[in-house]
Write a protein that binds this DNA or RNA. Structure first.
Lengths: 168, 168
DNA sequence: CTCACTGCAAATAGTTTGCATGCAA
DNA sequence: TTGCATGCAAACTATTTGCAGTGAG
């Protein structure tokens, strides 16, 4: 299913995503409201992993106030139509990310400073299908999260406590 | 509310885990209380993924009432000393599992019926180290979760809605 | 005897929901 | 016009925390 390796289109991407979103709404007979466009716009123009609060803040600093309930409702909508991905990095809240095409990536999460590094490993696609078919499972999505210390935090830790790695 | 049980650990395993737990507590000058032993016991004797509520229920049906706050405090303690693993299967609450040795396994999660299937893939170990070293990252733990439909739910879905797979 | 643990209840925090009102179609 | 969408606030739910009392070492 994900046989096409696709890189993120650089420009105009947000605009394309917006029209896909509008089309999805119309297809489902749902109104295209200003709030929905505002929330989706913020997400599509950003490349990071945004929390509901991040989105609220960006909307505010742009003058576009949208109620938090609506932000959550819109994010869930985006996830449902497949235009956004939900992430849980164990921070006690969720983060959302625009989902451009079928391109899959996974994450390294620093448990010390919270940095999130994306990585791509096509082998994971194969492995996912293999494991799934072994159990008659129909895979829809996956999350691969590797927790640990980023290069900087690792160095810092090794400096303070030279043999911490022995515990791993 | 009960999780699916998978493989059965060797006998006496729970007892061994308990004494490791007691040792950890003593090492940190922490009292070995009845409540701590009760909570740890439930977790060590089970092979599944238990929520805090599951544990409360099992304690109750055994006559051993323990306050929920204490259950949470003990679970966090177990995670901190490395004797339990925390899982988040996107159910809105966490599940805990005894951690026997360094054996790694990952999960297939049915988004329809909630079944959790464990799988082992040694290649993931390699992949984890490769990716990590590529970014100078020091991996500590990982979570690989493949969401989708288990064989039964997939069949049921295909029966009701013959071409749902086209949407994937 | 002392200090940390326990239970309870109240507090948190992210997210969801009920309801009167406001817009998109 | 006709519904859904919105905003607010209240509701929810899992988890954490404060505090008076209890128990392990």
């Amino acid at each position: 299913m994900d046989s096409t390796l696709q890189t993120r289109p650089p420009l105009g991407c947000a605009a394309v995503m917006m029209s896909v979103f509008r089309a999805s709404l119309q297809e489902h007979q749902l109104p295209v409201t200003q709030q929905r466009e505002a929330v989706a716009g913020i997400l599509f123009e950003s490349t990071g992993h945004l929390s509901a609060d991040d989105i609220a803040a960006r909307l505010k600093e742009r003058g576009d106030h949208v109620g938090k309930a609506t932000i959550y409702r819109t994010l869930n909508l985006l996830v449902d139509v497949g235009l956004a991905t939900e992430h849980d990095f164990d921070e006690g809240f969720k983060r959302y990310e625009a989902r451009i095409g079928p391109s899959r990536h996974d994450h390294l999460i620093c448990t010390s400073c919270g940095e999130v590094i994306e990585f791509h490993r096509p082998e994971l696609e194969t492995l996912q299908s293999e494991v799934a078919s072994e159990y008659g499972f129909q895979p829809i999505t996956r999350q691969v999260k590797i927790y640990g210390l980023c290069a900087e935090c690792d160095a810092a830790e090794a400096r303070e406590n030279p043999d911490y790695r022995r515990a791993l």
